[in-house]
């Protein structure tokens, strides 16, 4: 490797549920079997990629009242798949898209910290939001957030998750945790000291993220 040349970072996205994916090719295999995820992840690791990246689908999309033709029925949930991939890869980063409009910060901080722990420091979170009432019908007691509020919630969601992960000092001392804000009021001792190693990231608005969209928060 010659020094001085700017190095390229490579990652791979599992083929999505949009028109990029070719279904008609005879080589096109299952979109939901673990073997498909495993093959792509192992190939990415063989290619020394930084990470493998999964999108999120929270509700099957509909077209004229029927399930959209390009959607995948039975697609397994992303963090669960990444936990399984952690066992069959050794170095590859494992990135999950997870929505901050739905979910709760303590619960999600815990699931991501668990992935980071099981994979020994390979977890990443692609933070997205959704203002889609159709998707919201599956969550929040049927409610959803308008465009401005979803970023307010996402920002506090993110801050709360970070506070939870940082409530352990690097020396291994666990400090009491309490968060009180307009969106969340949580008092807990976090059992997880992980995700100090994990990566938080975000998608740019307009990036095809199906049903969810996002904007880069100010770097923290």
């Amino acid at each position: 490797m010659s020094r001085g040349k700017k190095q390229i970072h490579l990652a791979a996205h599992f083929p999505g549920v949009n028109s990029t994916t070719v279904w008609a090719d005879p080589r096109s295999g299952s979109q939901i079997d673990f073997s498909s995820f495993e093959h792509l992840a192992r190939t990415a690791e063989r290619g020394l990629f930084d990470f493998f990246f999964l999108a999120e689908g929270l509700r099957l999309r509909e077209h004229a009242g029927r399930i959209h033709d390009l959607d995948v029925v039975g697609r397994p949930e992303s963090i669960t798949v990444l936990n399984a991939l952690a066992a069959v890869t050794e170095r590859l980063g494992l990135a999950a898209t997870v929505n901050a409009t739905f979910n709760e910060p303590y619960e999600l901080a815990r699931r991501l910290a668990s992935l980071d722990h099981l994979s020994a420091g390979r977890a990443a979170w692609n933070v997205v939001t959704s203002s889609d009432a159709f998707t919201g019908e599956n969550f929040r007691r049927g409610g959803y957030l308008d465009r401005a509020d979803r970023y307010t919630r996402a920002a506090e969601f993110l801050a709360t998750a970070r506070e939870l992960w940082d409530s352990w000092t690097p020396e291994g001392e666990q400090r009491p945790f309490a968060h009180s804000g307009p969106q969340f009021r949580i008092g807990a001792r976090s059992p997880y000291r992980a995700l100090r190693r994990g990566i938080r990231w975000s998608s740019r608005p307009g990036t095809p993220a199906r049903g969810g969209s996002s904007r880069p928060p100010p770097p923290t």
Binding site: D25, S36, L40
Partner: peptide, 29 residues
């Protein structure tokens, strides 16, 4: 860098890793 979105599952990355990655390595990037 790039997040590659292959259009085939599960073999869509094979040719890139076999044919392009070695060239990027030769180029020192």
């Amino acid at each position: 860098g790039f997040i590659l979105v292959p259009h085939l599952t599960p073999g869509g990355l094979d040719d890139f890793v076999d044919r392009v990655v070695p060239l990027l390595q030769e180029r020192g990037v």
